[in-house]
């Protein structure tokens, strides 16, 4: 709770990518989640709903909600957030981790065989993110300590370059 306040940042970004995940987008706009977030010190929630229906937004004092569908890039919204709540999409997860922001992935139970879960589970195992389902979202927000997450090291494309140089006998 206090970590959000300490840094003087207090907004949450919720993103579901180009798909729809109405169970999540509806739920984060409900008073149950908004009250939880307000209690944790957050003052603003930006919800990217993708192709889902427009959610009904409950009014909770002290927290402001902003909703939009899609943008060419979510980089700026991630940058401004102090917590990102995302679907398991690899793009959103990796972009959030690259920006070094605390990440909570919400798994869609309706898409359990989605291969994208592989990555979310592994990143959780390695301590880079937390995950939960829609029904455990509030409990998870209360119980986890986002400051315990480890940064995800950036990729090393130069290693690929070295590998290729050996393959082609190219000396730089």
């Amino acid at each position: 709770m206090s970590s959000a306040r300490k840094r003087g940042q207090n907004s949450v970004f919720v993103t579901v990518g180009t798909t729809q995940f109405e169970k999540l987008t509806d739920y984060v706009c409900s008073s149950a989640v908004l009250k939880t977030l307000a209690n944790l010190g957050y003052r603003k929630v930006v919800v990217q709903i993708g192709r889902g229906r427009d959610p009904l937004i409950d009014t909770v004092p002290g927290i402001e909600v902003e909703v939009y569908r899609l943008k060419p890039s979510i980089t700026e919204d991630i940058r401004q957030a102090s917590l990102v709540i995302s679907h398991a999409g690899a793009g959103s997860c990796l972009e959030t981790l690259a920006a070094n922001k605390p990440l909570l992935v919400v798994i869609n139970d309706d898409l359990m065989n989605n291969h994208q879960l592989e990555l979310a589970y592994q990143l959780n195992k390695d301590g880079h993110l937390f995950y939960c389902t829609v029904s455990t979202l509030v409990d998870t927000l209360h119980s986890v300590d986002f400051s315990s997450l480890k940064p995800f090291p950036p990729g090393q494309p130069h290693k690929f370059g070295q590998f290729m140089d050996r393959l082609f006998n190219i000396n730089n």
Binding site: A90, Q156, P157, K159, F160, G161, D165, F168, N172
Partner: peptide, 26 residues
């Protein structure tokens, strides 16, 4: 070495450009 790179949608393209950034001027 000439390169033929196959681009795909969103994530694939992003990863491909990252790989290509590791290749030198040759």
């Amino acid at each position: 070495a000439s390169v033929l790179a196959v681009m795909g949608s969103g994530g694939h393209t992003k990863e491909m450009l990252s790989l290509l950034s590791g290749l030198g001027p040759h």
